[in-house]
Amino acid sequence: MRLLESVARHEHGAPAKQLAREAGLALPTAYHLLRTLAHEGYLRREKGLFFLGEAAERLSSSGAGQKRRSKVADALAGWHDAIGAPVYYAIYRDGEIEVQCVADTPGNPAVEEWADFRETGHAHAIGQCLLSQLDDEARRDHLDRYPVQSLTPYTVRDDHILMRRLESTPRMHPVIERQEYVLGTVCAAVPITMGGTAAAMAISMPSHQADRLLPAARRLQSEIGELLGTLSLSISI
């Protein structure tokens, strides 16, 4: 690891003797470790100089992804504490609904995914919010793959009603869903504009707290700007 750290400090490469000295290793030991690291793809050698290899770069990319994930999770946890409700972050990627992060507590648990979120986008606020940001062709493609189905007595009844609802949703307004995915729960989702990617943040509450839902969603929407840069980066996670 010390050798890898030493190599990482030298953008234009470094010879074995210098790396051994910086890592505090005997030269024979350093030579052996450098050859092993190069063989495994963590380093590459060119004209007597060592550089980071593809395997090390993958580790770096993974670490950066974890750091971005941590920033998103911390922000969601802060909003959960401030609002007193579970907070969700989701995107629409490659034709699928992806819930990327959820902040909840035992006292304010997230909605249990009893029916696959990807297949039931018509029935929950996250899915409706993401679908409302797509063009007509993309929406129809999604519904062809995941047809409308009744999950509760309040679920939208068919594709035509859902399409009209999505088309009439005001741009950048919160999407409200009341007991359509699961009885006893109401949800609100806020659309997020990030280039060509549809994204949303959402909250859920017990249905007896429905009067808190819209004010909480608007508060969340007003504070999202602080995190937009991190959310944009997290699309690549």
Results as ranks from 00 to 15, higher is better:
1 M>V: 04
4 L>Y: 05
7 V>W: 03
8 A>H: 09
9 R>F: 04
9 R>E: 13
10 H>P: 09
17 K>M: 08
20 A>T: 15
21 R>L: 12
27 L>V: 10
29 T>E: 06
31 Y>P: 02
33 L>F: 07
38 A>E: 15
43 L>W: 12
47 K>Q: 15
49 L>W: 10
49 L>F: 12
51 F>R: 04
58 R>P: 00
61 S>W: 08
64 A>Q: 11
70 S>V: 00
74 D>W: 01
76 L>T: 10
83 I>K: 03
85 A>M: 11
86 P>K: 06
87 V>D: 04
89 Y>L: 11
90 A>Y: 14
93 R>C: 14
94 D>G: 12
97 I>R: 06
97 I>A: 04
105 T>K: 09
105 T>N: 08
106 P>W: 01
111 V>C: 14
114 W>D: 11
117 F>C: 02
119 E>N: 06
119 E>S: 14
120 T>C: 13
125 A>G: 07
129 C>I: 00
129 C>V: 01
130 L>N: 04
130 L>E: 03
131 L>V: 09
131 L>S: 05
135 D>A: 06
141 D>F: 07
143 L>S: 06
147 P>S: 07
151 L>Q: 02
153 P>M: 11
158 D>S: 09
165 R>I: 04
165 R>D: 02
166 L>N: 06
168 S>E: 09
170 P>N: 02
171 R>Y: 07
172 M>I: 02
172 M>P: 00
172 M>H: 04
179 Q>N: 05
185 T>L: 12
185 T>G: 04
187 C>F: 01
188 A>C: 03
197 T>W: 00
198 A>G: 05
204 S>T: 13
207 S>Q: 07
208 H>E: 11
213 L>Y: 00
217 A>G: 02
218 R>F: 02
219 R>E: 06
221 Q>G: 03
221 Q>C: 01
224 I>N: 05
224 I>K: 04
226 E>K: 10
228 L>C: 00
229 G>Q: 09
230 T>R: 01
234 S>H: 14
234 S>Q: 12
235 I>Y: 11
235 I>L: 12
236 S>N: 15
